[in-house]
Write a protein that binds this DNA or RNA. Structure first.
Length: 214
DNA sequence: AACAACCTCAACCGCATCAGA
DNA sequence: GTCTGATGCGGTTGAGGTTGT
């Protein structure tokens, strides 16, 4: 089930990351890129048993991997309806807006972009958009664009979070992660302006339209 | 052609939260 | 209420690819 962009077709799985002298690797689990064979096994088991209890999925599939790794592989790569390839201008715009609104809440942002994963969006942000924004800021001289106040951000975050939750549950419960978080802690809200609420609702309207479009 | 510098993105890690016993 | 295992999230890493010199 590997795609063309997949680097995982390599036969050999090399350990990744810093593992000082194989220091306490539990049972020598496979690490690194996934092979097409592993993908196939994982997909088969998930088809039968569903995407839950990842540890047992790993065992049932005969994969020498931890459940976490299997989950990640499924969510970011094997899951049906994954949209791969270039991020469209519309999507990019949406990511920018959502990031302005939500911050680094990648899973929430991903929840508003059908077929995109949080990892993908995070990568895209780090490699493309953050630079773009830095350049723009340097040119304009202002650190950030006009955006909603923190209290409005908070409301928007709550709303988006709720919507994502609903969508997730209506999609069979899969990906029903990121359901709640401490908004109070995340945003330190003080001042507000009437314009900002308008900004948020406009944004949400636009967002809805885009979702229907895609 | 060879090398260095930079870029991309899959995968890992640590931590937080949730759910069940 | 506490413990423990499962799950989810965001930050980070590094292999491999691309571009520049």
């Amino acid at each position: 089930m590997a795609t063309m962009t997949d680097k995982s077709n390599r036969e050999e799985i090399k350990p990744k990351g810093l593992l000082p002298n194989n220091q306490s690797i539990k049972k020598e689990l496979n690490r690194g890129s996934w092979t097409a064979e592993e993908d196939r096994k994982l997909a088969e088991v998930i088809e039968v048993h569903g995407a839950k209890r990842w540890k047992s999925i790993a065992v049932k599939a005969g994969l020498n991997r931890c459940g976490k790794s299997c989950r990640l592989r499924w969510l970011n790569y094997l899951r049906p309806n994954i949209k791969r390839g270039n991020i469209s201008d519309q999507e990019e715009d949406l990511i920018l807006r959502l990031h302005k609104l939500l911050g680094n809440r990648w899973s929430l942002i991903a929840g508003r972009l059908p077929g995109r994963t949080d990892n993908e969006i995070k990568n895209y942000w780090n490699s493309h958009l953050s630079k773009k924004i830095n350049q723009r800021d340097k040119q304009s001289g202002s650190p950030t664009e006009e955006g909603p106040s923190k209290s409005k951000k908070r409301k928007a975050v709550e709303k988006v979070s709720e919507e994502v939750k609903e969508e997730a549950t209506s999609n069979g419960g899969e990906d029903s992660n990121m359901t709640s978080f401490d908004v109070d802690e995340f945003f330190d809200f003080t001042n507000e302006s009437p314009l900002t609420l308008e900004w948020v609702s406009k944004f949400l309207e636009l967002d809805k339209g885009l979702c229907e479009f895609s």
